[in-house]
Design a protein around this nucleic acid. Structure first.
Ligand code: SF4
Ligand code: SF4
Lengths: 146, 146
DNA sequence: CTATTATAGACTCATCGAATCTATAATAAG
DNA sequence: CTTATTATAGATTCGATGAGTCTATAATAG
């Protein structure tokens, strides 16, 4: 569980998709426009969300991306893990002379700490983000949605 | 609050120092030997611990490193923050078209999650690590201590 | 004075995040 | 069927940074 800009683009995009009327899709161009990022790169990020099963895509005219689940049912953790994968933040790669990898208190403590972080991220949904989004963004996206 | 190999070397070294009789110092060479890392590099890591006030160093014959505080009073968080600094794990660098950086729910949520992780790391002390250290390591370090 | 030890800075190397660019595939509309 | 539109894939680039190496310098016990 790490954190990169790709994750941040994903979080924003999921929130923006949540603003659209149910079932409506929107292309990558307006989504990239608002976030000031290149469409091709954002597209790459969104493709990972498609593969993770968080959103659905359709090519061609009137295509684009749309949500599958309700924003109340998508957590921060869902999005982050979809983009970043499940690798632990703390992974010991040391070649210590004497150690017991199976019964390692350091790794255990680190993983417990990471778990606390993940628990909190699992308790917060994207629905909470929507309340803070500027009305102009909402209006713009709805006007661009097909 | 991130996590690198340097932090791991620091955690191990603090634990090893905790094995020594109170007031005894030990050079970087045996510490590096056990961890299978170069002395010059480990020295660089330990210097940051010195500057952070966790350990004390002395040059010259019979010099080396020793703890200042008791291992019961040194937490995982102390060591990690000493090496990695205080930069938040989640720092938004996006240039979103419309956003309110002061009242940002995403950053707020991320920082809360990180806080949970830090709270757990603050609750675990290095004293807990000492119980798991192999007797051979303890014997070896005591024999090398000046 | 000398051997020993820590500190500092310059430097190298591999990895990886963050894109860009180009080409290809799929689809709705005419 | 054709075409414009949209997503997907892969190769490539660029800069930052983690992880060290190497060398020189400074401090201290004996
Ligand atoms: S004891 Fe644990 S943290 Fe230390 S080197 Fe072994 S696996 Fe890594
Ligand atoms: S709203 Fe928050 S997370 Fe989004 S771009 Fe602005 S500061 Fe970053």
């Amino acid at each position: 569980m790490k954190y990169t800009k790709a994750t941040n683009y994903a979080l924003h995009t999921i929130a923006y998709l949540g603003l659209l009327p149910s079932g409506k899709a929107i292309g990558v161009k307006p989504l990239a426009e608002i976030q000031k990022v290149s469409p091709t790169y954002l597209s790459k990020v969104l493709t990972t969300l498609v593969k993770a099963g968080l959103i659905i895509s359709a090519p061609g005219v009137k295509g684009g991306y749309r949500l599958i689940k309700d924003v109340e049912d998508i957590t921060f953790l869902d999005v982050i893990q979809a983009v970043e994968g499940l690798n632990p933040l703390f992974h010991c790669s040391l070649d210590n002379h004497v150690h017991d990898r199976e019964n390692c208190f350091i790794q255990q403590t680190m993983n417990e700490a990471e778990k606390k972080m993940e628990e909190h991220l699992h308790s917060q949904t994207i629905a909470l983000v929507l309340q803070k989004i500027d009305q102009r963004v909402s209006d713009y996206l709805k006007s661009e949605a097909g």
